[in-house]
């Protein structure tokens, strides 16, 4: 019982059943990670979305390891690099950051359900924030131009 599709393709009689199986299986075997939607919703809940998005330059992407021994994380967008070094102290993180190119840029660190913390980098591009609550975290950097730019990172679970 081969039917001819309007497009001219030959449909196998089992196609619909196979697609129905796949429909069930992508949810069973490969659903979006738990909490991903919430992390994205947090990331885009910004006052001003006229931003550039830095990408996570993940050295360990091949190993597929996440969350363990994250000493240093690097984000980049166009000419800007944001490096952060993380130290766990009790329930909180100490964040040592470094912006390249250097400058006295404003840095905001948002943590889901814990508001945000702000500081300013020194002329060498370095900044430190102590006692940052652990959780879903996003970094926002205001670069004083000209031209002024806002760079945001994706959220990271720190």
């Amino acid at each position: 019982m081969t039917k001819i599709e309007p497009t001219g393709g030959q449909a196998h009689p089992g196609d619909e059943a196979l697609l129905a199986e796949l429909d069930r299986m992508i949810d069973e075997f490969d659903p979006p990670p738990a909490g991903l939607v919430e992390r994205i919703q947090f990331a885009i809940a910004l006052e001003d979305l006229d931003v550039e998005v830095a990408r996570w330059e993940r050295a360990d992407s091949l190993a597929g390891v996440r969350g363990s021994d994250q000493g240093t994380i690097t984000f980049t967008v166009s000419d800007l690099t944001v490096m952060i070094n993380l130290t766990r102290i009790g329930e909180n993180n100490r964040i040592d950051g470094w912006l390249v190119p250097a400058g006295e840029h404003a840095v905001e660190i948002r943590v889901a359900e814990h508001g945000s913390r702000e500081t300013t980098a020194d002329e060498g591009g370095r900044f430190v924030l102590d006692g940052v609550p652990r959780g879903t975290t996003q970094i926002i950097i205001q670069l004083y131009g000209p031209p002024a730019r806002t760079v945001v990172t994706p959220t990271v679970l720190l």
Partner: peptide
């Protein structure tokens, strides 16, 4: 599913999904 269908592992796909949404809204 587009990210996963283009050969990304789940960890990398998660980053890409976030990047795409941030890019959309900006």
């Amino acid at each position: 599913h587009v990210a996963r269908g283009n050969g990304l592992d789940r960890t990398t796909a998660e980053d890409v999904v976030q990047t795409v949404w941030l890019a959309l809204f900006s």
